[in-house]
Structures are given as structure tokens and as C-alpha cells.
Design a protein around this nucleic acid. Sequence first.
DNA 1: TTTCTGTGTCACAAAAGTGTCAAACAAGAA
DNA 2: TTCTTGTTTGACACTTTTGTGACACAGAAA
Lengths: 224, 224
Amino acid sequence: MTKVLIVDDEDTTRNTISWYLKKEGFQVFTSPSGEDALLMETSIQPDLIVLDIIMPGMSGLEVARNIPRQVPIIFLTALGQETDKLTGFNLGAEDYVTKPFSPRELVARIKVVLRRYGKSPMEDHISCPPFEINIKARKIKVAQTEPYLTAKEFDLLLFLIRNSNTIFSREALITNVWGYEYDGDARVVDTTIKRLRHKLGAQHRDCLKTIRSSGYMLEVITNE
Amino acid sequence: MTKVLIVDDEDTTRNTISWYLKKEGFQVFTSPSGEDALLMETSIQPDLIVLDIIMPGMSGLEVARNIPRQVPIIFLTALGQETDKLTGFNLGAEDYVTKPFSPRELVARIKVVLRRYGKSPMEDHISCPPFEINIKARKIKVAQTEPYLTAKEFDLLLFLIRNSNTIFSREALITNVWGYEYDGDARVVDTTIKRLRHKLGAQHRDCLKTIRSSGYMLEVITNE
DNA sequence: TTTCTGTGTCACAAAAGTGTCAAACAAGAA
DNA sequence: TTCTTGTTTGACACTTTTGTGACACAGAAA
């Protein structure tokens, strides 16, 4: 699974790119600030970073300077900031995209850079009986049925499937599925789990285990 | 099991951080004062310390200065104490978090620092015949069976397995399993042991030895 | 605009876990 | 044996945690 981290202070930009990349089967992480991005970088270890240069607080260039690891970066920049371009390439930038840009173009460039780095193409299908997930289409098949899941439901289930047979506290699920900055009641998880169980039907609702006073877990049969 | 020591004079701060960390599977110790913290540090040998700078009595910086061992420290500081920041980094601070802070952010930073130090939050499997413990799923296998254990039962058994063939007094078990702050009858241990024995069944209930007027011990065969 | 869908919050009911207690019981000392 | 001390156990009350339906609200769609 190829991980891409998007750093930009504008919500719309983040969301747009994120949406297009998810559709292509990437695992997407976003951060609205350079400071947070640095933290996330270490823990996520993304395969590529899309980095806005102009941000309040720490600039994209500073972020790039402070990343210890060698990771390809694509900078987003306003029209005609030629000096930045030079600095950026010195910092190991792989590419530049000038705002405003077409998301499709950005996705294409991301793919090019990843290919250059020998990253395997993104996964687009996961099989984890009884689940079959088509990531690009964001569709899930359980045994014969193909229940309709909303965005959050899908994300949560996908995360649990990727990490099956592991307990996650509500907090952990919040940070992994709802995201870093989400601040709200952790019991949304309960509600979403409930909705998922309902949609999975009597047959498979039991895959979603409650581990009392610890959290939730997706249990699937492992044939060791 | 990764140990984190939290030092802060405010009860709420201590408790909040503690709660979030425990949810993530860390073993948490807390201290309301710098003096105590120093004592605890030597006996506990935590993997990371979260240290408030401003405290009555000994300040966080002094504490840091007096810790002989090399251990990563994350300082908590009030907004804009820039001078402190410098001093702290000289004392080997790994990170700074400015109060007020989001607990989720702090947890994320703690994980980053621990990763940098090559510590992961949890091991995931223990084998100690006839016991097999899957920590990620909080499941325990005894010979063929897989008895359902409640949270406390699991914690107690896990502790005893980790420290098998060692006698613990009820008080010791209370502080290690129930936690420092627990104040209640130490005889809960008796009840929990009883419930465990019941669930282990006739085959293995004898692993849980009673050492009259000393405490309890888990006895397993060691083949040296 | 109005309508519809997805998402989060809340309050309450139901379920499950935990601690306390007292009586019955065992071990060891005198 | 008998006494004393410490342990086992079941019952019960109480607390915590979870499930669920109803509702509010925002943003997309019509």
C-alpha cells in the first residue's frame, strides 16, 4: 500500500487531492501545518510527500529541511516563485506543481515519481475472507452481498480489515480513521460500529468484536 | 511493555495523559512532585518521561538535571517560555509540548520519540507453556482451550505470567495490576485469583499457587 | 430554495465486570 | 487435638461500559 502525505494549510486543497488519490488506491494522510507534518512523517513513513511551500508557521521548505529520511517530495507553489524552485530542488524535491493545478495532473506526476522510486503500484484490492474490498471503487463484498457503506463506515471497516485481529481503543480508531485533529466524542466509534454491524447483517456482524473496556476488533479466521 | 512516567503537579493533567496512554497500551506511572519523580525514576526505569517544567518545589528542569540515566524526556511548558526551551534541549529534551495541549497530540509525539529510540509500544505475543498470550487481541490460550477472561483477570494473569515463578504479596499485585492510586480492599486479589482458577479449569488451576501468608505466584515448568 | 443523506451527539436501557462481605474451610503451631 | 490465622468461595450490590434509537445539523443534490 503506497502512503502519501499531503501538507497544505488550505482545507479545500487537502481534501481535493486526498479525494483523487484515495480513488486511485493510495493511502492518504493529511496535515494542515508543517509542524504536525513533521510528527506525522516519522510515525507514518510515507512513500511520498506533497508539500505546500507557503504556509503560516513553518514553511514547506523548512519542513523539507527537517525531514531526516530520504523521501520524494512534490512541492506545491504559487505561480512564478522561481527562487523557491531552486531552493527546493536543492532540498531534494522531485517535482514542482504550480498552483492552481489540475488534480489529475498532480496524480499523474505522483505516479511518475513513485515509479522512478520503484514503488510497486498501489494495491487496489484486498481479500480478507469473508471480505473483498475494491479500494478504487470503495466497494466491499461480504460473502454474496455488497452492502452500501458510507464514507466513514467504509474507512473504519477498511482500517479494521487492514489490521484485523488487533484490538483498537476508541481513541486509536479516532486518530487513525477520523484523523489527527478530530476533536469530538470518541463514542462516534460506537455509533459507526453499530451502523456497520447492522449493514453486515446477522451473518457477519459478529466479526466486529467488542472487547469490553479495551475497544473493538475485527476478527477473521487466520489459517496459520 | 513500555513504561512512561508522568510528572506534573496538577491532578487533572496527570490523569488525562495517563488515561490516554493507558488506552494505547502503555504502562503508566505518575508523580505529583519532582522529588518523588526522581525516586520513582530509579526504581521504575521508565522508557520515557513526560515532565512539567513549572512545579512547586523542584522544577522539571532540575529533575532532568538530576536524572543520571539517559532517558528521553518530553517537557510540558506554558506558552512562550522560550528560555526554558533552550535550557531543556541542552538537558537532552526530546520534545516540547506547550500547555494547553491536545492529549492526542501528546500521545502522537510520545510515539514518535519512542520510535526514534527503537521502542515500540507493545510486544505482541508471549509464550510461556502452557500459556500462549496474544497481546494485540488480548487472548489467552491454555493448552487447547481459550477461556474468556475479563479485563482485570487478563491483566492479573498477564502480570503473573510475565513474572512467573515469583511470589507477590496482595499489595504488590494491587499496585502492579490495579495501579498505584487504587484504594480498596487488597482482598480483591483473592476473588480475582479465584475467578481465574475457575476459568483455567481443573487442568491448570494449580499453576496459580497460594503461598500462605505471603501471597500468590504463577508456577510454570522451566526447563533449564 | 427545499429535500435528502451522512455524521455526530445525547440520553437511557441493558449488559457485563468488579469489589465487599461473611460464612465455611484449610493449614500449621502449640 | 484444638486453636489461631489465613484462604476460598458464593452471593449480592454497585459501578462502569456498551448498545441503541432519536434527534440535530451541515452540506450535497435536486
